[in-house]
Simulated assay, not measured.
Amino acid sequence: MKLKMGLAAIAFVVGATGFAMANQDIIDLRKQIMKTNGQAAKVSGMMLQGQIPFDATVAAAAASSIAGSNAVFADFFPEGTETGDTKARDTIWSDPEGFAAASQATVVAAEAAAAAAADGPEAFGAAFQALGATCGACHEDYRVN
């Protein structure tokens, strides 16, 4: 919950100040959000592969972190931030509704994974696999690989 509120506050500040932040600062912020998502996914994957013990609280928190960041992620792509050190495809700006929908699909899948964590590693694993599919679909359409 704190992560959602923090990211929402950042999104509000970015939106309210327009281009007060340099484009590269916004791009760097987007990269950090994706890095944090990657770390949450890594911990989840390690639990599911038996590399670390499964902990339902940690699994739920990791998935909730991904849900929270994706709830506001589409807001971090204002016009003018399509150039610079970014892997964002032009389709983010040419299809903002599609990008927002893809980000929202990730939120829904991440929330489902967070809820499934309480039912154990098998349930979490199935939900986490669905989450990975939404992440992959978004990257395929909206990220330069």
Rank of each mutant, 00 (worst) to 15 (best):
M5L: 15
M5E: 15
M5I: 06
M5P: 00
M5R: 08
L7R: 07
L7V: 13
L7N: 09
L7S: 10
A8N: 10
I10Y: 08
A11Q: 01
A11T: 03
V13N: 07
G15L: 08
A16N: 15
A16L: 15
A20K: 09
M21H: 12
A22Y: 13
N23E: 13
N23K: 14
Q24V: 10
D25R: 11
D25I: 06
I27A: 09
D28M: 10
I33V: 13
I33S: 08
M34V: 09
K35M: 10
N37S: 09
N37Q: 07
G38A: 11
G38H: 13
A40Y: 01
V43Q: 13
S44E: 00
M46W: 00
M46F: 01
M47I: 01
Q49I: 00
G50C: 11
Q51C: 01
I52P: 07
I52T: 15
A56N: 14
A56L: 11
A56M: 15
A56F: 11
A56Y: 10
V58A: 15
A59T: 06
A59Q: 04
A59E: 02
A60D: 02
A61R: 15
A62P: 06
S65G: 12
I66Y: 02
I66D: 07
G68D: 14
S69E: 02
S69I: 02
F73C: 07
F76R: 06
F76K: 02
F77R: 05
F77M: 13
P78M: 05
E79W: 06
T81W: 13
T81G: 11
E82L: 04
E82V: 02
E82I: 01
A88S: 05
T91F: 00
I92D: 00
W93K: 11
W93M: 11
W93D: 09
D95M: 05
P96V: 08
P96E: 07
E97G: 05
G98H: 05
F99G: 11
F99L: 06
A101Y: 00
A101S: 07
A101L: 05
A105P: 02
A109H: 11
A110C: 02
A110T: 01
E111M: 09
E111L: 11
A112S: 03
A115S: 09
A117S: 03
A117G: 06
A118F: 10
D119P: 05
P121D: 14
E122W: 00
A123M: 01
A123Y: 00
A123H: 03
A123F: 01
F124T: 03
F124W: 04
F124S: 01
F124I: 06
G125H: 09
G125F: 02
